[in-house]
Amino acid sequence: MLKIEGLTAEVDGKPILNGIDLEVPAGGIHAIMGPNGSGKSTLSYVLAGREGYEITGGSVTFDGIDLLALEPEERAASGLFLAFQYPVELPGVGNALFLRTALNAIRRHRGEPELDAMQFLKVARQRMQALSMPEDMLRRGVNVGFSGGEKKRNEVLQMALLQPRLAILDETDSGLDIDALKIVAEGVNALRAPDFSALVITHYQRLLDYIVPDRVHVLMGGRIVQSGGPELAQQLEASGYASVQAAA
């Protein structure tokens, strides 16, 4: 489904990604772990198409389509979703309006009919209950005054509504207490399906206790230096990234 080959990218002339090779099959849940500054967030932004990241080499295909040639909204429409590490605040923009606008943009692209306000509310309420989100979060401004946990749950709610085929979770576990972590993990697990893939980017093994990955990759210095099964995450937790560095 997602195929990254020899991807290199730089920010302000400084190389951050130094040749990434990674393949996530349909239905696969892959985790990317790595220390600060290893290029984890850069990778997620490059895949989602954020400005300010210059691709200097390599290729990324999503279902065989050249992902890097698409605008961010086209990538979203084709099924790529990024759960932000720091969800952005949009003052004055009601969360319900935002979610509905996003959902209808995606539905238009899929050739599905748009939902009106009532239909949308019905769907949104169901999803919110599953995530233990109070309904007033629909009325508030997008992420404005949300706690860290609420912001992350709001990301997962968006994911649940938009039903992407590839979700990139960029340190979605940071700043979450254990209860919120479980809720978020359940939200992701609920989407598990043969045609749903996820790239779970995290610092710690903790999240992977709840979202059990098929593969774990260690990113360091802009390269994947080691790959393995779920046990690799536990090994890292025990001995730290330094051991990998020494081995690499």
């Binding site: 989602a48 605008e71 990538r75 605040e89 949009l90 996003a102």
Partner: peptide
Amino acid sequence: QLFYCRQRGM
């Protein structure tokens, strides 16, 4: 803010 919205398909 723009990127956030565009990532959601707008």
